[in-house]
Nucleic acid binder design. Structure first.
Lengths: 254, 254
DNA sequence: GCGATGGGCTTATCTAGACAAGAAGGATCC
DNA sequence: GGATCCTTCTTGTCTAGATAAGCCCATCGC
C-alpha cells in the first residue's frame, strides 16, 4: 500500500481560525455595514478557542476587507464602495457616493503656489524654476476617510486659481465655470502600492497597507494645454477601485 | 501641567515587529528575487525577540508582497511583475514576462464543448441551450503560477476550435492564423476580489487571499461578431496588474 | 541503481498569560 | 454646569511553550 501521493493529496482540513472566519463572514453579510462585531473575547468564548485564535479569524476578515478594527473601540462590519473609473468615465465623487447610499464629503487644503516636484513639472511642461498651484484634497464616505490626492495646477492656464478654489470647491466645476475650460483626461494609470509612511499618515493607516494609486493628467480638450497633474491614493478598505472601458463593462455582474 | 493632548498626540513608537519588518524590507531590497530569507528562529535570535514577533514581521512583509512563504521550505524574496493592460494594450504574456527577465509558460486544458454559465451565454448572445468551447488556461512566471483564466469561445465564429487549440497554443495566434480574424477587446473590467474557494484552489492559494480579476469580451474587429467571453484571475503576489490609458501613461515613473 | 525511511529543518497553528494603549462613559470635584 | 479623573472595555503587542505538517536530503535496504 503506497502512502498518500503528493499530487492528489487529500485536502488538509482548514485551520480553526479559518473556519471561524468563514462562519463569521457568512453571518456578517447579513448585518448592516457599520454594525459592531463581537469582541475578541466574546468570539473566543463563543467558539471555545483562545483569544488569539479568534483574533486570527478577525485579522483574516480584515485582510478580506470584510471588517474594520479600531483599537479601543472594536470591530465593525466594513462598507466598501465601488468607484468605477476609465477612459470614458470621470465620475463625480459626490454623485457616486450618494447613489450608493453614503454621505460624501470633500475637503481641500488651501491652495498655494509652490515649486512642484520633478514629475509634476515634467507633466505640466514647466522648467526648473516653474511654479504651480498645489491642491491637496481629502474625500470621505460617511465618517471614513477614503482618499487623499495631491495635484499641481498650471498657473498659466488658470491664473488666480488660489482665489477661486475654496475649501469645498470642485476642481471640475471651477475649471468649467470660472475658466470656461473643457478638462479631459490625457492619460491615467491605476495600480496598487504599499503606502509610504507619508501617505499612510495622510490616510490614517496604522501600518503600511496596500493602497490604490491613480495618477494622471488633465488637459484642455480644445487647446490641448496641460491643466493638472495629479496622484490620488485610496484606502482599499473603504473604496474598491474598478477600472473599465468599452460598452457593456458596466453591465457585468459579480 | 496638562496631559498629552489627544489631537496632537505624539506618534506612538512603532511596534517591534513593524520595526523589524521595515529593517528587513530594506535589506531584502538588495537581495536577488527568490533568495532564501532567514528563518523565523534565526530572525528571532538576530533581533532578540520571540519567534512569534519575528513571524509577525514576516507576515507584515507578506502582506506587502515583499516575501513569499511556503510551509516546510522557508521564506523567499518575492518577485512581482508589472502587467500593464488597457484599451490600447493587449500585451502578450510571453513577451511581457520575457522582457522583464522571467521565464514564461502557458498551459491550456483540453478544449471542450460545454453549456456555458449564464454570464457567458449572455455575452456571446447564446440561447438557453447554446453551447460554447470552454478554454481554461494557466500561466506561469518561472516556477510560479500567476494566473488562471476561464473563457468561452463561440463555436459559430470558430468552428472546429477544439482541434486547433493545443496545450501550448496562443488564443490570439489561433484566431488570426487559422480563422483570419482580427480580435479586439469589446470591453474590459478590472478589479479585486476575495478568491472564492474554487479560484483559490486553481491558483494554489492557501487562504482566501485577494486576487486581481479581469473580465472582458473579444469581438471581431470587422464584423463585430462576438468571439470570446473571459474571466482571468491573477495572484497578486506574482503579478502587479496596472491599468492605464492615454499617451504618456507608460512614461510614468514610480 | 533505486526506492523507502526517517531525521531535521521549515512554516502553520494553537494555547495561556500578561501588559500597553486607545476609547467611551460615568463619577467626582470645583 | 463643566472640566477632569477613573474605571472598564476594546484592540494591539509580546512572551513562552507546544504540536502539527510540509519539504529536503541523507541514509538504509534491497
Amino acid at each position: 500500500m503506497v502512502a498518500m501521493p503528493r499530487t492528489a493529496a487529500a485536502e488538509a482540513p482548514p485551520a480553526t481560525y479559518m473556519r471561524i472566519a468563514d462562519t463569521l463572514a457568512q453571518r456578517l453579510a447579513r448585518r448592516q455595514p457599520g454594525a459592531l462585531v463581537e469582541s475578541e473575547n466574546e468570539l473566543a468564548a463563543m467558539f471555545g478557542v483562545n483569544r488569539l485564535t479568534a483574533r486570527a479569524a478577525l485579522e483574516e476578515l480584515e485582510r478580506r476587507y470584510a471588517v474594520r478594527r479600531t483599537k479601543g473601540r472594536g470591530t465593525f462590519v466594513a462598507r466598501r464602495f465601488d468607484y468605477r473609473i476609465g477612459p470614458d468615465r470621470t465620475p463625480s465623487w459626490t454623485v457616486t457616493v450618494r447613489e450608493a447610499g453614503g454621505r460624501p464629503r470633500t475637503e481641500n487644503d488651501r491652495v498655494r503656489l509652490v515649486r512642484p516636484p520633478i514629475w509634476a513639472r515634467r507633466e505640466l511642461g514647466l522648467g526648473e524654476d516653474g511654479r504651480a498651484y498645489h491642491l491637496q484634497r481629502r474625500r470621505w464616505v460617511d465618517e471614513n476617510l477614503a482618499t487623499y490626492s495631491s495635484s499641481f495646477v498650471s498657473p498659466e492656464v488658470v491664473p488666480g486659481f488660489e482665489r477661486r478654489m475654496g475649501v469645498e470647491s470642485s476642481l471640475h466645476d471651477v475649471l468649467t465655470d470660472f475658466y470656461e475650460l473643457a478638462p479631459q483626461r490625457a492619460w491615467s494609470r491605476c495600480e496598487f502600492e504599499v503606502a509610504s509612511p507619508a501617505v499612510a499618515k495622510q490616510l490614517g493607516l496604522r501600518g503600511r497597507d496596500l493602497v490604490s494609486v491613480v495618477r494622471g493628467r488633465l488637459d484642455c480638450e480644445s487647446s490641448g494645454r496641460r491643466i493638472e497633474a495629479s496622484v490620488a491614493y485610496a484606502r482599499m478598505d473603504v473604496l474598491n477601485i474598478v477600472y473599465e472601458f468599452g460598452v457593456g463593462a458596466g453591465e457585468v455582474r459579480r
